[in-house]
Amino acid sequence: MTAQKGKDMLVKLHNGSIYETVAGLRAKQLAFNEESVDITDSESSGRWRELLGGAGVRRCGLTGSGLFKDQASDETVRSAFFAGSLIEAQIIIPDFGSLTGPFLMTALEYSGQHNGEVTFDLTLESAGAISFGAVS
């Protein structure tokens, strides 16, 4: 696999009828985590920590920042946050695949300098099973 352009990583939110690309995102970061379940006891070999595989809670988190460019996607982002409800999201990673599932928008921040554009930051947290589809 060759190097990929960061601009080709897309974040799409379902607006009720289609997946709509969140316009204006300049930076995106996707993270996967799994909690560990410690099962160490006084008889653990050499007093080394022992973890129970497959028992922790998994999560997927996405952060993004950018500027508003498209009224329709701006409204989708704003509505998702203020509704406080789960929204279907699709994250496309070029030459890798796509991730789809329910997310909750846990943060939406706006900022701007007097001599610059208004920007936004958003955070999405997985709220259920995430499915992966490989690029074919």
Rank of each mutant, 00 (worst) to 15 (best):
T2G: 15
A3G: 14
A3N: 13
Q4N: 14
Q4K: 14
K7N: 15
D8I: 01
K12F: 00
K12D: 00
H14T: 00
N15V: 00
G16I: 02
S17M: 08
Y19Q: 08
Y19R: 01
A23Q: 08
G24L: 05
L25R: 02
Q29V: 02
F32W: 11
N33D: 10
N33A: 13
E34I: 07
D38E: 03
I39Y: 10
T40S: 14
D41T: 02
S44Y: 03
R47L: 07
R47Q: 11
W48Y: 13
R49E: 15
L52I: 02
L52W: 06
G53Q: 11
G53F: 07
V57H: 10
R58C: 09
C60E: 10
T63Q: 09
T63P: 02
S65W: 02
L67N: 14
L67C: 04
L67H: 02
F68Q: 04
F68P: 09
A72K: 07
D74W: 01
E75Y: 01
E75I: 01
T76D: 15
T76A: 12
T76L: 07
R78I: 09
S79Y: 06
A80G: 10
F81A: 11
G84S: 05
I87D: 10
I87L: 08
E88Y: 11
Q90V: 08
D95K: 05
G97S: 14
G101K: 01
G101N: 10
G101E: 13
M105K: 10
T106I: 00
T106C: 06
E109L: 13
Y110S: 11
Y110L: 09
S111D: 15
G112P: 01
H114T: 06
N115C: 09
E117F: 06
E117R: 08
T119C: 04
F120A: 03
L124K: 08
A127C: 05
G128E: 13
A129W: 03
A129L: 10
S131P: 04
F132V: 04
